[in-house]
Amino acid sequence: MKHLALTIAAVALATPAFADYPERAIEVTIPAPAGGGTDTSARKLATLLEEELGASIAILNVAGGGGSVGVTQFMMQKPTGYSLLATWNSPITTVPQVQQTAYQPDSFTPIASTSETAYTLCVKPDFPADTGEEFLAELAANPAKYTYGNDGIGGTMQLAAERIFQSREIDAIAIPFGGAGETLQNFLGGHIDIYGGSISPVLPYTENGEAKCLIVTSAAPVDALPQAAGLESLGLGAEETLLWRMVLGPAGLDPAIVDTLAAALEKTVNDPAYVEFLATKGETPNVVTGDALADRLQGEYDALSKVAKALGLNQ
């Protein structure tokens, strides 16, 4: 047994770091529980990426702290190219505002963003509003009357909603839940008035008429939710907050590896199979790489920091 272990060690030693990257399994950390939106997107992408790169991909889910636990643990990894982070934007741009994290948006090597979608606010069919404008007017006219569920205190979903509410001086009561599934359950059961969360879980209920989604948090409207207004049409285009996903590496990752990965991601994200998969979840492919991605992270971080301060959530 010792012999075997030594052989493995010897093989590992003899291998130069970046020669024919990748030449062994890549471990992808997902800072969210198995089965959630980020997890499914990353796993589907991983199956395509495995073929493209010719290396197998092992997924490690490290949930908790709104994503900060997994991201912090990932930060300790060496920049070998064999450990990557597949995350959504919240742990990178929102969580550092409300928690004392050991990282900032620039603590990583940006590789590529993969897809994006909006959050949505939905109500029951009997709610006295049928458009985005009416919805906001109803909320503004009744301060502290309505409750809205969100993905957790100080999460991107809550900040996305509060950006809209603040600019219209709306006071709605935030009820934090453990995730979109739990929010949906309480919304359908009538325990909260407004569903706030990603589009995918609530989509079937708009189709059967149990929910009407009146606002999406993107500037443009979303095809899957025709009744929902985009923020641009409400004159709130500047308050756009998206839910988007990306792949990051540890700081100091070799540029050659970054290029290989970015090219592979660009190709697999735009693979028809993946685009179709994203469509069923109400997401669209969106690949931003390199410095542009770093700018996007920093820009969003700065914009959300204002909202967090106004809410008194910031550290």
């Binding site: 075997l4 060690a9 590992a12 770091a17 092992a58 490690l60 070998t80």
Partner: peptide, 24 residues
């Protein structure tokens, strides 16, 4: 140890702690 190695490193490809002298 052979069975554990087969299950975790070959079938599941889970990265486990490596020796300090290994590059990774």
């Amino acid at each position: 140890v052979g069975i554990v190695w087969l299950v975790f490193s070959i079938v599941l490809e889970k990265p486990l702690p490596t020796p300090f002298w290994s590059a990774y």
